[in-house]
Design a protein around this nucleic acid. Structure first.
Length: 287
DNA sequence: TACTGGCCTAGGTA
DNA sequence: ATACCTAGGCCAG
């Protein structure tokens, strides 16, 4: 099935670090959404897909986001405008909140390559297998599955100290104590506070979940790359002492996080998350 | 309130 | 090869 998608760039969208389980084979991207394997490819402005409906594709890839409007809102300076130009068509997708939550709990203090492997092992071990296009695919494991897994089993997927966070968080979601769909409907600040009560979810992980799966485009995650970007391009927006402190260390505290986060949201506005994602991708690829 | 060290492990690099 | 370093942070003290 085909639909028109413009502006849209499938490669940028799936390679910018917001989602980890997609894999490209030849021209086709293979993934699993709503426990269903699918493949997608882009030729110019045409998006071709198999095994899922059009509504799912439009929703998942956020084809309703008005990129022109977003671009004019966040295009505050030459740096972000350069990133917008270079990666034009990158969209923030609507992942499933559950998969997004566990993905970013696992993502702390790990490289993207390692995160991909962890999530792949987790899915192969605890997800449901489906045959598609001559190959095995696995759904993302349910809260129930992960809640009932032993720490040892989780650790064997390479999770390390994250295993206990994944287990505890899964238990809370599985029991109904934590309802992701309810959190999704809350305003940004409230949703962030509730998410941060989950084990393994701090301010950065919460912002990633809100941005990539809960329609909170004002969320502005600050990771090591965004810190570098902040120091490199936006240091004049901060006191000199703050800049000295952050430039001399290679870690930063939660209050430092909140300062950079508040700047991003104030400076870029309601679509700050888009600015973050373009800048992040730009800086990573030109590092 | 703000800061610091410790933490599991696997890719990547020298 | 083999050691060493760092990786999209979180949490307890």
């Amino acid at each position: 099935m085909n639909i028109e998608a413009c502006p849209f760039n499938l490669d940028f969208t799936l390679c910018c670090g917001q989602v980890f389980r997609w894999e490209k084979r030849g021209e086709w991207w293979y993934g699993v959404v709503d426990s269903r394997p699918l493949r997608v490819r882009q030729t110019n402005n045409i998006l071709e897909f198999h095994n899922v409906g059009e509504a799912l594709v439009r929703r998942y890839f956020s084809l309703d986001h008005d990129l022109q409007r977003i671009s004019s809102e966040i295009g505050k300076d030459a740096h972000v405008r350069k990133a917008l130009e270079e990666f034009w068509g990158l969209r923030i997708i609507r992942q499933e909140p559950w998969e997004c939550l566990i993905s970013f709990v696992c993502a702390t203090y790990k490289s993207v390559a390692a995160i991909r492997n962890m999530l792949q092992k987790l899915s192969a071990r605890f997800g449901e297998k489906t045959r598609y296009d001559g190959r095995d695919f696995y759904s993302f494991p349910s809260p129930k599955k992960l809640a009932s897994a032993t720490l040892k089993d989780l650790e064997s997927c390479g999770l390390g100290y994250r295993a206990k966070y994944v287990k505890k968080t899964s238990e809370r979601v599985n029991s109904g104590e934590c309802e992701l769909e309810v959190i999704r409907k809350m305003p940004y600040e409230q949703a962030k506070n509730v998410l941060q009560n989950l084990p393994g979810v701090g301010s950065k992980v919460a912002d990633c979940i809100l941005l990539f799966s809960m329609d909170k485009l004002e969320a502005y995650p600050v990771d090591v790359w965004v810190r570098r970007i902040t120091m490199k391009y936006y240091s004049e927006h901060f006191p000199a002492a703050f800049v000295r402190k952050l430039s001399s260390k290679n870690s930063f505290s939660n209050s430092d996080y909140e300062k950079m986060n508040a700047f991003g949201r104030r400076y870029f506005g309601e679509y700050a998350g888009y600015a973050q994602e373009y800048l992040y991708h730009y800086e990573r690829l030109n590092h």
